[in-house]
Each structure stands twice: as C-alpha cells, then as structure tokens.
C-alpha cells in the first residue's frame, strides 16, 4: 500500500538492537578490550615531522590504504544487519558505496581522544598536523571537528551500532531500485535507535543531534571525493597504479 511505516513490537526492537550491537562489536576494527588496553600514546614531534615530510602522494596512498581497511570491516557489518542481504545486489552496492565512508567517520569516535584532539592512526594517536602532507587541511580540520562533536555525545556501543546501521540504510541514496524496502529497514532501525536511547535514559535532544550529523557526514564525504578528484588530476598514475582497488571502485 506504499506505507513504509512498520509496526514493530518492543520485543522486536530489543531483538534488532541486540543483533545490530553484536554485529557492530564483531566487526569493529578495534575491540573494546583492545581500546581499554591502548596506551593512547601520541606521536612524538620527530614522528609528526616524518609524516609531514612525506611526499604528498605517499601520504595519500597511506591514508587510502587505512580508509580501505576500515571500509572492509564496515562491509562485514552491513552483511550482518538484519535484512541487508535480502536487498537486491544493486541496492547493497549503492548503500555501501554511499555510506561506508560515513560509517568509518562515525566509528572514528571510538578511537578519538577529545582531550588531545587526536585519532588512532598507524599505531599511535595523531593530531591534524600529522596529515599536513595530504594538502587538504580544511577537510582534515572538518573530520577532526566532526569526531570531536560526535564524541561529545558519549554514545554507548549499542547507540553507535544502531546509528551506524541507520546511516548505512539511508533510503534517500540515488540509484536505489527497491527504495521502499530500504525505507522500511531504515525506519525499523530508527525505532530501535530511539528505543535504545530511551532505555539508556538519554535526553530527548540526542536523536535530533544525531539527525544533524547525517548532513555533516554527507558534506565530509563529498569533500573527500572533491579532494580525491583534485589529487587524481595531478597524480593520475599514482592513483591508477598504487591506490587500493576497492578505494578506486568506491570513490573513483
């Protein structure tokens, strides 16, 4: 009948939340235990300088590799989301092409140290200055600002899991063939997220704050694509021969 609003019981929402949280924890690059044991050690000044003095293309290549590794975990997460693999193959690809990097940015807040404005990268905690050689300071600043702002919400793992699934199941992506089916999945995920927020006794405004993050994520990803195009215009051979094939497939 064209109505996408699903009727879902509390028990179903609990079940959905549990499955998505489990999938999130199983597919996070860094386990909770690893995070607890992390020494949160920052790069020393000479190490920062060594990253800064790398040729631009070498730093781009390193970051493309790290992003690709993180995306592979997000693909595994997507596969374990109830209903994702029931979507047609076209839509699975559309959702991951558009949403996988957004989820990497969301997951970044798990390995972000707000006090030092540093993110876990290549074995230690790195501030924005480590990425200087990339030549896109504005994008890097925005990524760090995003991580800081999302971290300030202090989302629990189950909230992060459901928010990540909500992002991946965005029904307004272009080129979806079975939009209504994606919409139903997203609405169910949103209900589960609201249910968990309520259960965790979060204040009412959190869901609205998370909705604002959706547009921030889109802006970050489109700016990443712009920066990549600009980089590729100067170094087409580096991208062609040295960038991970999955990265090129998703962002090329």
């Amino acid at each position: 009948d064209g109505d996408a609003s699903p009727t879902v019981s509390m028990a179903e929402l609990d079940h959905l939340s549990q499955i998505i949280s489990k999938s999130h924890l199983e597919t996070c690059q860094y386990l909770k235990e690893e995070l607890q044991q992390m020494s949160w050690q920052s790069f020393l000044q000479d190490e920062v300088e060594s990253y800064q003095s790398k040729p631009r293309e070498v730093m781009w290549q390193l970051c493309a590799l790290k992003i690709t590794e993180a995306i592979q975990y997000v693909v595994e997460f997507a596969k374990r989301i109830d209903g994702f693999m029931d979507l047609c193959q076209n839509d699975q690809i559309v959702l991951l092409k558009a949403g996988s990097l957004e989820v990497v940015f969301v997951r970044m807040c798990r390995v972000f140290d707000s006090q030092n404005n540093a993110v876990y990268f290549d074995g230690k905690f790195a501030g924005p200055d480590v990425f200087k050689a990339l030549g896109c300071d504005d994008l890097i600043t925005s990524v760090f600002d995003f991580a800081k702002s999302l971290s300030s919400l202090h989302l629990s793992e189950d909230e992060l899991a459901l928010f990540s699934a909500f992002i991946l199941l965005s029904a307004d992506r272009s080129w979806l063939q079975e939009k209504l089916q994606v919409e139903k999945l997203q609405q169910k995920t949103q209900l589960a997220l609201q249910h968990v927020l309520q259960k965790n006794q979060r204040e009412d405004g959190v869901m609205n704050k998370l909705r604002c993050k959706v547009s921030a994520l889109r802006s970050l990803c489109s700016r990443h694509t712009e920066k990549l195009s600009a980089f590729r215009a100067i170094y087409p051979d580096i991208v062609r021969s040295h960038f991970p094939p999955l990265y090129k497939e998703l962002f090329g």
Partner: peptide, 17 residues
Amino acid sequence: LKEKHKILHQLLQNSTS
C-alpha cells in the same frame, strides 16, 4: 553497477567470517 564494483560485489558474496 555490479560490473563496475567487482571487488565490493565479491566481498558481499563471501560468506561472513
């Protein structure tokens, strides 16, 4: 789309580990 995203398609086809 599947043709242009062979690696992603392959990752989706692989059984979850």
